[in-house]
């Protein structure tokens, strides 16, 4: 990972007319990583990938692939790059193997002598050896997807760019692709996977970047990204005023009460109880109730000076009655929804 970046973009932008499809994206994909490229549909992922591969010209900015400037050194770089761009595309009237032959022979950089063996091997890797002689016309979507991945694996590659590789695959296929990606990464190939499937990225990737509306909103190692979200503490106390003072004294900024927002989580168990046990006495509920105070413990990376246990200790010391205390970390999903806004189709 110290060996530099497999993909590096600087200020990469693409305008279609007035609209910026990709807006000043600075990607940094370290060597040897499995890099998840996340974003909602239409966030500019595929356009970015097209620019990475020299299919589309950047309106501004630079692309470095495997340490070489693109698209100037396209012919040096692309033979080392396998790609699946926006779904597979093949000649329907040719067999799977013939398609791979044709695409392989399209490049002047491949060795014709080993072509047959390499095609065979690639087909085996994606489990298509039995359908090799079938016309692509008769392939299912998943088989085409596999064939597309096989095409990316025709030659030994240093970098794989896979755009939505598990699209249309059955669960087994998805798992196979995941294993394939892992084994490739194991061999040292950098894999750049674009996806809108959070779970997929979560399971496969070591690093990730998130695109939203053409902008890169986050990137880094997955673990870091998970942490990057704000950690909040949620305090339920009847002594709101004293608690605020304590928190403020700890430098935790203003501690705004958010009773409404807190309500669902804090009061949920009781809410469920209410319909079941209508006879529960009012006072009992009132006793648990208190003002809810939410405070952000720290955002981003380093400035996490205050630890939760210190907060509790201080509160107790100040005689604040703590009825509830929780440290909440955003889930990856929350994080992405927060980054990309609503409409991120995680469920898909």
């Amino acid at each position: 990972m110290t060996a530099g970046l497999a993909i590096e973009t600087r200020g990469l932008s693409k305008h279609f007319g007035q609209q910026a499809a990709v807006d000043h994206v600075d990607l940094a994909v370290p060597h040897g990583t499995v890099f998840g490229f996340l974003g909602p549909n239409g966030s500019g992922k595929t356009t970015t990938i097209r620019m990475l591969l020299g299919l589309a010209a950047a309106s501004a900015g630079t692309v470095n692939l495997l340490g070489r400037e693109m698209p100037d050194k396209l012919h040096e770089v692309l033979p080392r790059v396998g790609a699946l761009v926006e779904g597979p595309a093949f000649y329907p009237f040719l067999s799977g193997a013939a398609n791979l032959h044709r695409l392989d022979s399209a490049s002047p950089h491949t060795v014709p002598a080993t072509r047959k063996a390499r095609v065979q091997q690639a087909l085996e890797r994606v489990g298509l050896e039995h359908a090799a002689g079938k016309r692509v016309h008769a392939y299912s979507l998943g088989m085409k997807q596999r064939l597309g991945i096989a095409n990316a694996l025709l030659s030994p590659r240093d970098l794989l760019v896979l755009d939505e590789p598990t699209n249309g695959l059955d669960p087994q296929g998805t798992r196979e692709v995941r294993n394939l990606v892992r084994s490739l990464a194991h061999q040292g190939t950098t894999v750049f996977v674009s996806s809108h499937l959070l779970a997929e990225v979560d399971q496969m990737c070591t690093h990730a970047a998130v695109m939203s509306a053409g902008k890169l909103v986050a990137q880094g190692p997955l673990a870091e990204l998970r942490q990057a979200g704000s950690t909040r503490l949620r305090l339920v106390t009847p002594d709101a005023g004293a608690a605020r003072q304590v928190l403020a004294g700890l430098g935790l900024a203003p501690a705004p009460g958010e009773p409404d927002a807190a309500q669902p989580q804090a009061a949920q168990p009781e809410r469920i109880d209410v319909p079941g046990r209508p006879a529960v006495p009012e006072p009992q509920r009132a006793r648990l109730d208190g003002e809810t105070i939410v405070a952000t413990l720290g955002t981003g990376s380093g400035q996490r000076a205050v630890l939760p246990e210190d907060v509790v200790a201080q509160l107790v010391q100040a005689g604040v009655r703590v009825r509830g205390f929780a440290v909440e970390r955003e889930s990856l999903e929350d994080r992405f929804v927060a980054l990309t806004g609503e409409g991120f189709d995680v469920a898909q």
Binding site: R10, G11, A60, G61, T62
Partner: peptide
């Protein structure tokens, strides 16, 4: 520096 480099790049493109 970045932006000036970018500008140059644009003009060469």
């Amino acid at each position: 520096l970045d932006s000036s480099a970018r500008f140059q790049r644009n003009s060469t493109q």
